[in-house]
């Protein structure tokens, strides 16, 4: 491996940029790929699949074996709203291997006692989210029920390549939300990215059950093939 490739692997990880290294096993010929390079690579399909499963793998092409090293940034969930449901999500996210962070400008909610071992940012979304960075390996969830807080967060999420956007609220609440966001200039195709009512329909009632349905929906968005293809195309 060229020292330059090793440095780029390490730098990409530090900057949360996805990348891949393809090695021809016969002779060690290598190529380093950014997400943009992958679109044009002959192994594009295999690369997308490897990213979807987040697994490095050997692939065979015309009798040659290649090893694809995948380096995807750690998956994150940014939750807007330090509420009961997000408390349950924090524990589940840990089990599922996500870094979860909570944003809520209401300091009474966004306290460390309510969220032990979780990063809590007690700021408005337009302050907090640009600093945290919404990228293609981040899921965004709006749970405050308060348009003053949720809307600016959703607007930033819609302008970002984040792989999942969900918003709590009934169909009626969501219809009003869509109206507001349309007035703010978002097209129908953009707004279709918002999962609402949020979560897979498992009949959840308690905050923990709702958290479970949200985590399941995030998992499905990440792992099901059609959606993963889109994730790979959206880029970092």
């Amino acid at each position: 491996m060229k020292a330059d490739y090793l440095a780029r692997l390490n730098q990409s990880r530090a900057e949360r940029q996805p990348c891949a290294l393809v090695t021809r096993l016969k002779d060690g010929t290598q190529r380093f790929l950014t997400l943009a390079d992958m679109d044009r690579d002959p192994l594009h399909v295999e690369l997308v699949q490897a990213f979807r499963l987040n697994k490095s793998t050997v692939v065979e092409r015309e009798g040659e074996k290649y090893f694809i090293t995948i380096q995807a940034p750690p998956l994150r969930i940014i939750v807007l709203g330090a509420v009961h449901v997000s408390q349950s999500m924090a524990g589940m996210a840990r089990l599922l291997g996500y870094d979860l962070m909570v944003v809520d400008p209401r300091t009474a909610f966004a306290s460390e006692t309510r969220f032990p071992d979780t990063r809590v940012v007690a700021e408005w979304p337009d302050q907090a989210l640009p600093a945290l960075g919404l990228d293609a390996f981040t899921a965004f969830v709006a749970l405050t029920h308060d348009p003053k807080i949720d809307d600016p967060g959703l607007e930033l999420a819609l302008k970002s390549p984040c792989f999942y956007i969900g918003a709590l609220g009934s169909r009626k609440t969501h219809a009003r939300r869509i109206e507001r966001l349309q007035k703010a200039g978002f097209a129908e195709a953009d707004l279709a990215r918002i999962h609402a009512p949020i979560g897979l329909n498992i009949g959840g009632v308690s905050p923990a059950e709702i958290a479970l349905s949200i985590m399941a929906e995030i998992t499905a968005t990440l792992r099901l093939p059609a959606k993963a293809e889109r994730l790979a195309q959206q880029g970092g």
Binding site: M1, L6, L25, K55, S56, T57, V58, F67, T69, I70
Partner: peptide
């Protein structure tokens, strides 16, 4: 030198990569 697990068959203690 960097050694990398590139393939595993059956039960293997460390994953590919």
């Amino acid at each position: 030198a960097i050694a990398t697990v590139v393939e595993t068959w059956g039960s293997a203690p460390r994953p590919v990569g």
